[in-house]
Structure formats: C-alpha cells, structure tokens
Lab assay of single mutants.
Amino acid sequence: PTIVLKVSPEELKALEKAGVEIEKIEKNEDGELYITLTPEALKKAGFE
C-alpha cells in the first residue's frame, strides 16, 4: 500500500533534503501538493 500525503512546499523541500524517497508529486488545480510514498520510504523516514 502506498501513502498519499498533502504537504506544503516547505515540507516537500524538507522531505527531499532528508532524502525521503518520494514516488510521485502531484499538484491539484488549487495548487495543493500531494506526495505518494512507498512503504519502504516510510520505514526509512521512521514511520511504521
């Protein structure tokens, strides 16, 4: 199962800087950012 999270541009930068593997980055028509994370990326980021 993949996880989709709504993030701010600042959060996205912080995640990328931390080396979190982001599978997909999407922006909706309201300009909101959503990222898709794999279970492996979540484990690496410390989420179980």
Rank of each mutant, 00 (worst) to 15 (best):
E40Q: 05
L42Q: 10
I25F: 05
A18D: 05
G46N: 03
E23K: 07
A18T: 07
N28F: 07
A45E: 03
L12Y: 06
I25K: 06
K27P: 07
E40Y: 02
D30M: 12
E26T: 11
Y34D: 02
P9V: 12
P39N: 14
P9Q: 10
E29W: 10
K43D: 13
E32L: 11
N28I: 05
L42C: 13
E40I: 04
T38P: 03
V4L: 08
V4R: 14
G31I: 01
T38N: 04
L37W: 01
K43A: 15
K24L: 08
K24W: 10
E26Q: 09
E16P: 00
F47M: 15
E21L: 06
N28T: 11
L33T: 12
K24E: 06
L15C: 03
A45S: 08
I22V: 07
I25S: 03
A14D: 05
L12E: 00
P39F: 15
L15D: 00
E40A: 07
K6F: 08
E29N: 11
A14H: 13
L33N: 03
L15S: 00
P1Q: 12
L5N: 01
A45R: 02
K44Q: 02
E10H: 09
L37H: 00
E23Y: 07
I22E: 00
T2H: 14
T38F: 03
E48T: 02
E26K: 04
K44F: 01
K27R: 13
I3E: 04
V20W: 03
T38A: 04
F47T: 10
I25A: 04
E48C: 04
A18C: 15
A45W: 04
E48Q: 03
P9L: 09
I3K: 06
A45P: 06
E21Y: 06
K17M: 10
E32D: 13
E32S: 14
I22W: 08
K44H: 03
P1C: 15
P1H: 11
K6T: 05
N28V: 05
Y34M: 09
L12M: 07
P1S: 11
S8T: 10
N28E: 05
E32I: 07
E11Q: 15
G46M: 03
S8E: 04
K44E: 10
L42H: 15
V4A: 06
F47N: 07
K43I: 12
K44P: 00
T36Y: 14
L15V: 04
E10C: 15
F47W: 07
F47Q: 13
E23I: 11
E16G: 05
V20N: 01
A45M: 09
I25R: 04
D30S: 11
E26W: 13
L37V: 14
E32V: 07
P1Y: 12
A45T: 03
E32M: 11
T36N: 03
V7D: 00
N28Y: 07
E11P: 00
T36K: 04
G46H: 03
E10V: 11
A18I: 13
A14P: 00
V4P: 03
T38S: 05
G31T: 02
A14L: 15
T2M: 14
E29H: 10
G19K: 07
T38L: 04
E32P: 04
V4W: 04
L15P: 00
D30P: 03
E29G: 13
I3S: 05
K17S: 12
V20M: 04
L5H: 05
E40F: 01
V4I: 11
I22C: 03
E21Q: 08
E23W: 07
T36V: 05
A41N: 09
I22G: 01
L15E: 00
G46W: 04
T38W: 02
I25P: 01
L33R: 01
G46P: 02
L5S: 02
A18L: 15
A41Q: 14
K44D: 15
K44L: 03
V4E: 04
P9F: 08
S8M: 07
I35D: 00
P1L: 13
G19M: 06
G46T: 01
A45H: 06
Y34P: 00
T36W: 14
E10L: 14
L42V: 14
K24C: 11
A14K: 15
E32A: 08
P39M: 15
K6H: 12
V20E: 00
Y34F: 12
G19A: 05
V20Q: 01
L12F: 09
P39S: 09
K27H: 09
K6W: 08
A41H: 03
T2Q: 09
L42M: 14
E23G: 08
L37S: 04
K13W: 08
S8W: 04
E23V: 11
E48H: 02
G19P: 01
E10S: 11
L33W: 12
I25E: 02
Y34K: 07
E26H: 11
L12R: 02
K17C: 10
P39C: 15
I25N: 01
N28W: 07
E29L: 10
L5W: 07
K13V: 10
E40D: 08
L12H: 03
K17Q: 11
I3M: 10
F47R: 14
P1M: 13
Y34A: 06
E40P: 05
L33I: 14
K24I: 09
K13G: 09
A14N: 05
I22Q: 00
K27G: 08
G19N: 08
I35S: 00
K24R: 13
L15T: 01
P9C: 11
V20G: 01
V7S: 02
E40L: 03
G19E: 06
E23P: 03
L15R: 00
E21N: 07
A41G: 07
V4K: 13
P1R: 10
E29D: 12
I35A: 04
L42F: 15
L5V: 14
L33E: 02
L12D: 00
E10K: 10
V20C: 06
E21W: 08
G46R: 04
L12K: 02
Y34R: 11
E16M: 13
G19W: 03
L37I: 11
V20R: 01
E40S: 05
A45F: 05
E29S: 12
K27N: 07
Y34E: 09
F47V: 15
T2D: 10
P9Y: 09
K6E: 03
E16I: 11
E21P: 09
E48V: 03
T38K: 03
S8R: 06
E48G: 05
L33Q: 04
I3C: 15
V20A: 08
A41Y: 03
F47P: 05
T38C: 06
A45Y: 04
K17E: 08
E11K: 13
K44N: 08
G31E: 06
L37P: 00
G46F: 03
E29A: 12
A18Y: 13
E29Q: 11
A18N: 11
D30T: 12
K43L: 13
E23H: 11
K27M: 12
E26M: 08
K24M: 10
I3T: 09
G46E: 05
D30C: 15
E48S: 02
